[in-house]
Design a protein around this nucleic acid. Structure first.
Length: 201
DNA sequence: TTAATTTGACCTTA
DNA sequence: TAAGGTCAAATTAA
């Protein structure tokens, strides 16, 4: 986190296994899987893509849950019929990491949040997006915005066809929140706010 | 020496 | 058939 080249740290260790030019995107998409995939058969993956119109913004797509952190001794494998996708877009200002979430920094506000179903014929597709803007004052000569979009897609219900991404129901990855935003010992504030705000709606 | 990254090829799906 | 996703050998870094 904190520079232009790397996506924000999310508390997990990822191993890059591919990169691909995406049609219509100026920047390639990078593919990561959990470093412990082999050791724990952890299915977690993520895709990181920088947005065309704002290279400071990374769109991070998480696929599947980590199973490598659930237990220190015996990692568990979640039911195969449930996978999740979370799209998270996070600004990573150049050389300016986000400050630790303190009460002061969080005194800024979620400027907007909306949950908008994006139904399409034949598909159940729900987009949950919210923008976060956190004004950290003038410490760095201006405000620092952190924009976060969480997109939860719901594909047709039904048995898995062997490829992730469309064959299962997707649900918000609530319990992944800590991992995504609270790496290490930092306090668990960000996602709590996000989801409590959702509840408020 | 081991682990991670890069990158072209291959596979799958629409 | 094109595009997205994954594999795996080669390369690089620790």
């Amino acid at each position: 986190m904190g520079n232009l080249e790397l996506p924000p740290e999310d508390g997990y260790t990822w191993r890059k296994y591919g990169q691909k030019e995406i049609l219509g995107s100026r920047y390639p998409r990078a593919y990561y899987r959990c470093t412990h995939q082999k050791l724990y058969h952890c299915p977690a993956k993520k895709q990181v893509q920088r947005l065309d119109d704002d290279p400071y913004v990374f769109e991070v797509t998480y696929r599947s849950q980590h199973t490598c952190y659930m237990s220190a001794t015996a990692p568990t494998v979640p039911p195969p019929s449930v996978e999740e996708i979370t799209h998270q877009t996070t600004t990573t200002p150049p050389l300016l990491p986000l400050p630790p979430p303190t009460s002061a920094s969080l005194s800024g506000h979620w400027l907007s949040m909306d949950i908008k179903p994006k139904g399409e014929a034949g598909t159940s597709y729900t987009t949950t997006s919210f923008d976060i803007q956190r004004d950290i004052g003038h410490a760095s000569g201006g405000s620092l915005a952190s924009i976060c979009n969480v997109v939860t897609t719901g594909g047709e219900a039904g048995p898995s066809s062997g490829r992730f991404g469309r064959e299962v129901d997707y649900q918000p990855v609530v319990d992944m929140a800590d991992a995504m935003f609270n790496s290490g010992s930092s306090t668990n504030t960000s996602m709590d706010i996000i989801f409590s705000s959702i509840d408020d709606k």
